[in-house]
């Protein structure tokens, strides 16, 4: 039983990290129909910048803030310069964002050096505590709590605020949103920036979770985020959380019981969903 609980917590923590990355991606995908393969690049820039500031200042909070800021700024640059000229053309989007992903990845090596970097949690998040015979790792619980808080906050914004309603309406019918006098391009840009900020935040959290950061991890992790978006349903925020937890748990359990299949299981999940429910588990109404 202890083992199961440990695996569930591992799975939930991994799921929350993937959710943070996938949440931005699903909004960008759902609202703007943009296949943004550069999303992983925003993730690594968040990770490296956050870790750099954290190590320089010895403040994890400052690291988080720096990671988010770089994510927002890179999101602005990516949307304006890379994505905006190729709206409506998926082939061009894949090519240019994949290219930009590689540029972002290589730029990491130029700015921060090509070597892997070890990262340690702040003292207050290090170690573990026990409940009965169960060992609970503090940082994993922290990620689960933060992930849930971000989900709740984002859900409240999406459901209750006018800007949230506009974003949801934009996923359903962009033309009608514009016809109501709303500048959809501005909304697109803000959503892109928020999505990038979430990706960068995920990068900061992931750096301590994995204990090491390297330039190539963005592409590896963003593939998981794409799988989550497809399983959850494009444009569905709740779908992303559900699918991310599913993927996180599947990966955690497989890594323990059948390690050879731990990566394949996510692809398998996606294939099953695509066969039986191609629109994803949570479809956004049009």
């Amino acid at each position: 039983m202890d083992l199961i609980i440990s695996l569930v917590i591992n799975g939930l923590a991994t799921g929350m990290l993937i959710f943070l990355l996938a949440a931005g991606l699903t909004l960008i995908f759902g609202l703007m129909s943009v296949l943004n393969f550069a999303h992983g690049g925003l993730f690594i820039w968040g990770a490296y910048t956050g870790v750099w500031v954290y190590q320089m200042s010895n403040s994890f909070i400052l690291g988080i803030i720096a990671g988010i800021i770089i994510g927002l700024l890179l999101g602005l640059v990516t949307e304006r310069l890379i994505v905006r000229p190729v709206y409506g053309n998926h082939i061009q989007q894949i090519l240019i964002t994949l290219g930009f992903m590689l540029v972002l990845q290589e730029m990491i090596k130029v700015v921060f050096g090509p070597d892997q970097k070890a990262v340690f949690p702040p003292e207050y998040l290090a170690g573990s505590f026990m409940i009965g015979d169960i060992v609970l790792i503090k940082y994993r619980l922290f990620i689960i709590v933060i992930g849930l808080l971000i989900f709740i906050l984002a859900t409240i914004i999406l459901k209750k605020s006018r800007i949230g309603l506009i974003v949801r309406a934009g996923v359903m019918d962009k033309e009608m949103v514009q016809s109501l006098g709303i500048n959809i391009k501005l909304v697109f840009m803000l959503v892109f920036m928020v999505g990038a900020g979430l990706a960068a935040l995920s990068g900061v959290f992931h750096s301590i979770y994995s204990g090491v950061i390297y330039a190539e991890m963005g592409l590896e992790f963003s593939i998981l985020a794409f799988i989550v978006v497809v399983i959850g349903g494009m444009g569905s925020f709740s779908g992303s959380l559900f699918a991310a937890i599913l993927v996180g748990l599947a990966q955690a359990f497989m890594a323990y019981y059948v390690p050879a299949l731990s990566l394949a299981v996510n692809m398998l999940l996606m294939v099953i969903v695509l066969i039986f429910r191609p629109q994803g588990l949570f479809q956004v109404k049009e």
Binding site: L180, G181, E286
Partner: peptide, 30 residues
């Protein structure tokens, strides 16, 4: 389009353009 709408033109399209996933109240609020 949003600039034209903000000049003071309301538009009811042929397909009505209802946001199906939003409630009536939310459609009005948008």
């Amino acid at each position: 389009t949003h600039q034209i709408a903000n000049k003071g033109i309301g538009y009811v399209p042929e397909d009505q353009g209802i946001f199906n996933g939003l409630t009536v109240g939310e459609n009005m609020r948008v």
